[in-house]
């Protein structure tokens, strides 16, 4: 076990825990924001640099501070380590810089972007960015692409987090898309138009922190904050079958995995991965396909996390009705 202090809060965590994971155990404002790290995807993290923190004491054994800021998502804790996140002006300034870099070529087309309202980049820039912009150059643009018939790739919005590539590597039997070109021109692509055709590819949409990969079946259907999230499940022989439904009236507009407080798909209660298959995601768009468990509480995102729907009496009544319908259908 290692004892680590982050912004004055001390916690004991198993050896090999990263600073970000230790901070998440403490919770609250001292958790460094992350854009590319995804706890359930191996080798993710390290790219976006938003979780840079300052290690003011390396460990009890070697108390020297680390000379540079380190990425909290990759740096593991040592016994006696002391870390500054929001208590370090240097960290906050560096993070402001990172936000500016991430937005430098981002189109800021939030008004027409399906991710708006649940976008990690929006949250990051509100929370950690500066007002205004200092760039006057034309933004980098790429052609829009379809990755198969269900996924839209809007490369202009991509921040190169590599999460979708890791989904393909770690969930899909073969990877047909990846990172092409280099540096400023690097892009996610299949090189030649190639459909990503396997049961797990839809999870790329869920891991995308921005609106670069979106669900074509939900495209322009509704702003996310006008939809009501419900926990629901069904018996699926491919995946865990536990999803969040995004509902408007009786219509299921969208199906996603269940994302937790850090906007990552949560494991199921019995500890299995919460990834969902494309059938559940794209094909099961009737309330009767699902057993409704109740409204889903959204922790994190700007607009939808107001959770106003939770208070709506009418909705609750609707719910019990829908639940009955769902159970009936399920039992049939």
């Amino acid at each position: 076990m290692a004892r680590v202090t982050i912004d004055g809060h001390t916690i004991e965590v198993p050896d090999g825990t990263t600073i970000v994971e230790a901070a998440r155990k403490i919770g609250g404002d001292i958790v460094p924001p992350t854009m590319c790290y995804y706890s359930t995807l191996k080798t993710s993290g390290g790219y976006c640099r938003t979780c840079l923190v300052k290690v003011t004491k390396g460990s009890d054994k070697d108390p020297r501070p680390m000379p540079k800021l380190v990425v909290g998502c990759r740096q593991t804790v040592m016994d006696g380590m002391e870390v500054q996140n929001i208590t370090s002006p240097e960290v906050l300034e560096a993070r402001e810089g990172v936000v500016e870099f991430l937005l430098l070529n981002h189109p800021l087309d939030c008004p027409v972007c399906d991710q708006a309202g649940e976008c990690d980049l929006q949250d990051l820039s509100y929370g950690h960015g500066d007002e205004g912009t200092r760039t006057e150059f034309r933004r980098r643009t790429f052609p829009m692409r379809n990755i198969g018939d269900k996924i839209k790739l809007h490369m202009n919005r991509c921040i190169m987090c590599y999460r979708c590539v890791k989904v393909a590597e770690q969930l899909c039997p073969e990877r047909v898309h990846g990172v092409l070109n280099r540096g400023w021109d690097a892009e996610i692509s299949t090189y030649i138009e190639k459909a990503i055709d396997n049961e797990w590819s839809g999870n790329m949409i869920d891991v995308c922190p921005v609106g670069a990969l979106t669900d074509k079946t939900f495209r322009f259907k509704s702003r996310v904050w006008f939809t009501k999230p419900l926990d629901a499940h069904r018996d699926c022989d491919v995946c865990c079958g536990r999803v969040a439904l995004w509902v408007s009236g009786d219509a299921v507009l969208r199906v996603t995995g269940r994302k937790g407080v850090y906007h990552e798909i949560e494991n199921t209660e019995d500890g299995k991965p919460g990834w969902i298959c494309n059938t559940c995601r794209f094909e099961k768009k009737n309330l009767s396909d699902w057993v409704i468990e109740g409204p889903r509480h959204i922790d994190r995102h700007s607009v939808i996390s107001q959770n106003h729907y939770e208070q709506l009496k009418q909705l609750k009544q609707d719910l019990s009705r829908q639940k009955l319908i769902g159970e009936k259908a399920h039992n049939n």
């Binding site: 990877r175 990846g178 990172v179 092409l180 070109n181 299949t190 090189y191």
Partner: peptide, 27 residues
């Protein structure tokens, strides 16, 4: 050409995307 890259992938028994990723990185 894409065809040549696919052929190299088959010679090396790797996915074509692995060849595209590499070929587009090096100038």
């Amino acid at each position: 050409s894409p065809e040549v890259m696919d052929y190299v992938a088959s010679v090396l028994k790797i996915q074509p995307i692995e060849v595209y990723e590499v070929a587009t990185f090096y100038t």
